[in-house]
Design a protein around this nucleic acid. Structure first.
Lengths: 343, 343
DNA sequence: TTGTACGCGTTATCAC
DNA sequence: GTGATAACGCGTACAA
C-alpha cells in the first residue's frame, strides 16, 4: 500500500542504503557494476519511486516554481501560463499554481504558502501594489520575478511596453489616413492603462493632431475584467462616441474584448467595419483571428512573457550569481481586417 | 538568508522544540499561557514560517492535488481548472499543475512526478487510454479521479453524459420544427464523440426521422483541437452540406468552435442564422454569449466537473473510508439566438 | 568500493 | 505542563 523506500530496496538487494542511494539518485559516485545491477533490479521489482519530500528536505531544492496569477479563465493569462508551463517542463520544473482571483489578500496568502512549500522561485502577476509579501520572499532569499505589472520594489521584472503598444496602434490608424481617432477603455487605475492613454496622446501630438477629450471614452466603473463586461463596456463606449457630431472614424481599444464589443455595437447600428469605422484591439487573444471581421490588434506576447520569465527564473535558481536583468517586451502589430483607410 | 526553523524559535524563546511545535502547529495540546506567548512573540520576531516539506514528510500529507490536463489554452479546460482551483482553495489545498500537451507519454510521466512529490490526490483529464501509470498510482494507494474521459479501469470518475447532450441538442431542433438536421464533427475516435453521434441518431429515430448519412459531415483528419482548426472544420463541413440538393435547415455541432465556424460559412454564403439555418453548439464556452448571433448550445458544466471532482477527492483524502461513487453530470440546454423555427 | 551515521525540519511518543 | 528523543526518506561526509 505505502510506496517503497530506499530502505526497502536496500533490504531486497542486500546492499546498504548508501549504495542504493548512490545508484538511484544518479550520483556519479563509483559503484561496481554487479552492485548497480542488483540495486536496479530490486528497484524495478519494487517499482521504487523516490520520495521528493525527503530529497527536497535534504537538498533544499524542490524543482517547483510557484505561479500566482489573477485568473486562468482570462485568455491572456491562459496564454501566459502556457508559456510558463512549456518552459518549465523543458527543464523539468513543476508548477504550483495559485489563483489570486484579483484579491490582494489572497495574493499575499498565496505567496506565503508557496514560501512555506519551499518553492525554488515565484512568478508573480500581481494585481495589488502592496509589497509586503514580496519583500518578505526576497528577504528570505527566494527568487521572485514579477510579470506584467511592475511593483515599487527592486526586483527582476518581465514586462511589456504598453505605451509603445498604444502608440503603435494609434500610429497604424494615422498611417491609414485617419484623423478622428477615439480611445475606448476603462479608468486609468492601473499603471498599464495610464501608459496606454499616454501612448495614444503622445502619438496624436507627434502627428499634430488635437486631442479631443470627448474622443476618450472610459467606463465609469472598474469592470470586472470578465470578458462579458469588457465587451459590454466596449459596446457602450462605442455607442456614445457614435452620437457625437463629428464621429470618429477609428477606435483604439483597451483590449480585444472591448474592441469586439465595439464592433458589435457598430454593426448593430449599421456601420460596417472597417469600411465605415476602423477598430484596433490590444492583447491578441486567440479569438481575434476568429471574430468577424478578424481583429487587427497589438500583440502583447503573453506566451513569450511567460516563457522568458520562466527561463530567467530557472537561470537564476540554478546559477545564484548569474547577472540578471529585467526586460521589457516590445509590442507587435498584427494587421487583420478590422482596419483600413477611411472612406 | 535562510528561513528560520522551529529550533531558532525554540532558542530565542527559551522553550523546547516540542513546546514550540505544539504552539505553532495549532495542536490542541495544553500549553501554559506564558509559554505560548513567549513562543508566539519569538516566532513573530523571526518571521517564522513552517517548512511544509518537513511537515509533510512527517505527516505524509502535502495538501497538494496534482492536476493533469491536456491544454489550459482551451477554454473548456480553463474553466475546468477554475472550478478545481476554487474548490481546492476553499479547503486550503494547492494545485500542482501538469500540462500533458495531448501527449500520452507526457501524461504518464506527469503522473509519476506527482506521485514522487507525494501529492494527496490526482485529478486526471486523460487523452490516452493507457492505464499503466494510473494503475500504479492506484496500487500505491494514491487517490485518483478521472474527469471527462473514462478509463478502462475501476476508478472514481466524474463524467458528462455526452449522449444525452447531443440528444438534447437534436431534440431542441426537432421541437422547433426542423426535420432535416445535420451533424457536424470529427472522426468518432474518442468515446465521447461516439456517444454524441449515438445521441443524435437515437433522437432522430425516436421521432421517426430518417438518418440520412449525407447529413453527417465529419472531418477526415483529426483536427488538433485547436480553436482555429475546429473552426475551419466547422466551416468546411457546413459548406459541403450546403451543396446538397435538399440542404439541412439546422446543424448540430460537435462543439462551440465548430459551430462558430459553421455560422461563419453560412453568413459568408448569404444564409442568415437562425432565419435560414439554425445552429447549435456544444460546450458553452464563455465566447458563446459573445458571438454573433449568441450561440445556443449544450452546457457541459466544465466548471462544475472541476469543482465536484475536487470536492470528491478531498472528501476521499480526508476520510479514507467515505463511501464514494462516480458521477455523471447531465447536460443543460442554453438557448440563445442561433436557433429558431425553420422558415 | 562499500557501509555507518548524521542532519534536513517537522510531529508524536514518552518520560518527568 | 514541559522536554528529550525517535521517527519520516533522503543524500553525503567520513570511516572502513
Amino acid at each position: 500500500m505505502k510506496p517503497p523506500t530506499l530502505r526497502d530496496v536496500a533490504n531486497m538487494s542486500g546492499m546498504s542504503l548508501a549504495t542504493v542511494s548512490r545508484v538511484l539518485s544518479g550520483s556519479d559516485y563509483a559503484v561496481s557494476e554487479p552492485s548497480r545491477r542488483a540495486v536496479l533490479s530490486a528497484a524495478k521489482k519494487l517499482r521504487y519511486m523516490p520520495n521528493a519530500l525527503g530529497k527536497s528536505l535534504k537538498t533544499s531544492s524542490t524543482r517547483e516554481i510557484g505561479v500566482v496569477i489573477p485568473n486562468i479563465t482570462n485568455p491572456y493569462y491562459a496564454l501566459l501560463l502556457q508559456g510558463i508551463q512549456d518552459a518549465a517542463a523543458q527543464r523539468e520544473y513543476h508548477i504550483l499554481l495559485c489563483n489570486s482571483n484579483r484579491d490582494a489578500g489572497q495574493e499575499a496568502r498565496d505567496i506565503h504558502s508557496l514560501l512555506a512549500k519551499r518553492v525554488d522561485g515565484i512568478l508573480l502577476a500581481s494585481i495589488s501594489q502592496s509589497v509586503e509579501a514580496v519583500q518578505y520572499a526576497l528577504d528570505i532569499g527566494c527568487t521572485l520575478i514579477t510579470m506584467e505589472q511592475e511593483l515599487p520594489i527592486r526586483c527582476i521584472h518581465v514586462g511589456f511596453d504598453y505605451r509603445a503598444g498604444s502608440w503603435m496602434a494609434t500610429k497604424h490608424l494615422i498611417d491609414k489616413g485617419h484623423r478622428r481617432i477615439a480611445f475606448i477603455g476603462a479608468p486609468p487605475s492601473r499603471h498599464s492603462r495610464q501608459q496606454m492613454l499616454a501612448g495614444y496622446r503622445q502619438c496624436l501630438a507627434e502627428h499634430a493632431l488635437p486631442v479631443d477629450e470627448r474622443m476618450i471614452q472610459l467606463s465609469e466603473t472598474e469592470n470586472e475584467s470578465q470578458s462579458i463586461y469588457e465587451m459590454e463596456n466596449g459596446a457602450a463606449c462605442a455607442a456614445k462616441l457614435l452620437e457625437n457630431q463629428d464621429r470618429p472614424t477609428a477606435f483604439v481599444c483597451l483590449n480585444d474584448m472591448t474592441a469586439i464589443g465595439a464592433m458589435r455595437a457598430l454593426s448593430a447600428r449599421g456601420f460596417r467595419v472597417p469600411q465605415d469605422v476602423s477598430v484596433i484591439g490590444f492583447d491578441n487573444i486567440p479569438f481575434c483571428e476568429v471574430c468577424d471581421p478578424p481583429l487587427t490588434t497589438i500583440d502583447q506576447h503573453a506566451y513569450a512573457i511567460g516563457e522568458m520569465s520562466t527561463k530567467l527564473i530557472i537561470e537564476r535558481i540554478e546559477n545564484e550569481d548569474a547577472n540578471q536583468c529585467s526586460l521589457t517586451l516590445q509590442p507587435t502589430l498584427v494587421e487583420r481586417r478590422s482596419t483600413s483607410s477611411p472612406a
